[in-house]
Computed example of a mutant assay.
Amino acid sequence: MRLAVVLGSDREGRFGSVVGRWLLDRLRERDDFAVEVVDLAETRLPTSISYDPAPPVREVLDTVTPKLAGADAFLVLTPEYNHSFPASVKNLIDWHFVEWQAKPVGFVSYGGMSGGLRAVEHLRTVFAELHAVTVRDTVSLHHAGGLFEPGGELREPTGPEAAVKRLLDQLAWWGRALREAREARPYAA
């Protein structure tokens, strides 16, 4: 199963790197996913859409678009900014359309009191518009800064590790089911 993992924060000094390392370590423990990372701190998409992208825009898209197009499923790691998701995630989404269609999207979120759940709820409506299927269960890390040791390991891993296993199991199921459906007949958008 080809899984594109979107690391959504592009802020300097982001905490998302800590959560991202933890998440990618969990994915390395599984043999059912081939992971492609789309790190939005390293992928500078332009901030406005043009119907005739200039060559530098095309070069960035030529590296990102194949990762999304080739994915059977997506996992979005997002912080919560101002009760929603970051502009970098919206920008990635808006530069693509058919790449998301008839594919499952799972979410790992982090933040303060809400653990990024408001960002996830906003993302669900955006992905529904793109004909993607969002997985119900999420991993939500509340007050994330206090959950991790300085070396990046969780202080109390039991709950989050069970949640990420459940999420990845569901994402794998949906990924296989929708891939088989797309192979049997083209998706009618």
Rank of each mutant, 00 (worst) to 15 (best):
R2T: 04
L3N: 04
V6M: 06
V6S: 05
L7K: 08
L7R: 11
G8M: 03
R11F: 01
F15G: 06
F15Y: 09
G16H: 06
V18W: 08
R21I: 08
R21A: 15
W22D: 03
D25V: 08
R26I: 05
L27V: 03
E29N: 10
E29H: 10
R30T: 10
D31N: 11
A34W: 04
V35P: 01
E36R: 12
E36D: 15
V38C: 05
L40N: 01
R44I: 04
P46H: 15
S50C: 08
Y51N: 14
Y51V: 15
D52V: 11
P55F: 06
P55S: 12
P55M: 08
P56C: 11
E59W: 00
L61V: 05
L61P: 00
T63F: 11
T63M: 02
V64T: 10
P66V: 09
K67N: 08
K67S: 07
L68G: 02
G70I: 00
D72F: 03
F74N: 08
F74R: 04
F74V: 02
L75D: 00
V76Y: 00
V76L: 08
P79F: 12
E80N: 11
N82F: 05
A87Y: 01
V89R: 06
N91H: 08
D94H: 10
H96I: 09
V98K: 15
E99Q: 11
W100S: 14
W100R: 07
W100A: 13
A102R: 14
V105T: 06
G106N: 01
F107R: 03
S109W: 01
G111D: 05
G112E: 01
G112L: 06
G112Q: 02
M113G: 14
M113I: 15
E121S: 15
H122R: 13
R124P: 01
R124S: 09
A132M: 03
T134L: 02
V135I: 07
V139G: 06
L141Q: 02
H142R: 12
A144D: 01
G145Y: 02
G146A: 15
G146D: 00
F148W: 06
E149F: 04
P150A: 14
P150E: 04
P150H: 10
P150V: 11
G152D: 01
G152K: 09
L154D: 06
R155F: 12
P157V: 07
T158S: 13
G159I: 03
P160W: 13
E161C: 10
A162M: 02
A163T: 07
A163P: 01
R166A: 14
L168S: 10
L168T: 00
D169M: 10
D169S: 12
Q170G: 07
Q170L: 09
W174T: 02
G175L: 00
A177V: 07
R179G: 07
A181N: 00
R182Y: 00
R182F: 05
E183G: 12
E183C: 09
E183V: 04
E183P: 07
E183T: 14
R185K: 14
